[in-house]
Write a protein that binds this DNA or RNA. Structure first.
Lengths: 145, 145
DNA sequence: GAAATAAAAGATAAAAAAGTCTTTTTTATA
DNA sequence: TATAAAAAAGACTTTTTTATCTTTTATTTC
């Protein structure tokens, strides 16, 4: 298992893809997104539905409909996606899974883990979704503007 | 989900517990380990059986039997436990789950993730199992020598 | 307003991870 | 050598994660 759940990986890749593909103001459909990032289409649909309900991505139904990102969404940090999908377990909580581990009662690796978790959090908080609409590598196809 | 799988968390806590409890040369049984680290006993038994087969912990059956760690095992890095249980996915592989992500064809977060993963690896490689037989916090009970 | 398009919603299925239970094997010791 | 103690092995169950399929709702365009 990587840093995030599979669901979360698809979510991030999907949102990046949407940002990239709709930089010109259009919409992009689930089929194209799924093919573009190499994910199972119905599963990704579920994930984006959830992100849409939470206001992290925007969508419209019907012809010419699809997913896109408004100004606010583009400004939001990557951490918003991760928290929505995986919760905040990656930022908080003990590396060894101990509930009673804390600053006062630290587990053997508490301080080292804390430093690493803080770096992950900083990275995800300081990176905005909108930063990635240039040329990016997101899956099967290398995207060019 | 934390940094490691639940199985791996139990494994690390279990091995730390064994290191601590057998520092004087004795053995410790599965019941005591499970109670000491707050894990389901039969599940932990499976995990330790596996680590025993791989030579990461030692065990003997029969009366006064139990788990312990020999010289070599105590010198081994934490990374050995993590690799045995979770594989090397935490050290290698793309944060966004892209198979074709590499130095030459990096994903948008490749370099940042790499730095963090390297720190995790360094931590796990540079910390030996034997370092933790002083007073440590590993679960339900805070252990004192 | 009918038809077509596309996401939303809901129900279901498969695979993996986590956890449990029972039987077997090994070892010490009485 | 019989007995008891303790891990090993194997089969099984439950829960969570990942994935799929079908129906419904909303929107556009003709």
């Amino acid at each position: 298992m990587g840093m995030f759940s599979k669901t979360c990986e698809y979510a991030i890749r999907g949102v990046f893809f949407i940002a990239h593909r709709t930089a010109d103001g259009g919409r992009v459909g689930i089929k194209e997104i799924a093919a573009g990032i190499g994910s199972p289409e119905p599963f990704l649909a579920k994930i984006l539905q959830d992100l849409s309900r939470r206001g992290i991505v925007q969508s419209t139904k019907g012809p010419n409909g699809g997913f896109y990102l408004n100004e606010d969404s583009l400004k939001r940090p990557l951490a918003a996606i991760v928290e929505a999908v995986d919760g905040n377990g990656i930022f908080v909580g003990c590396g060894l899974g101990l509930k009673q581990c804390s600053e006062i009662n630290p587990c053997p690796l508490h301080h080292q883990f804390k430093s690493i978790r803080n770096q992950i959090q900083d990275l995800l908080e300081q990176t905005s979704i909108g930063e990635f609409n240039g040329d990016i590598n997101l899956g099967i196809s290398i995207l060019k503007r």
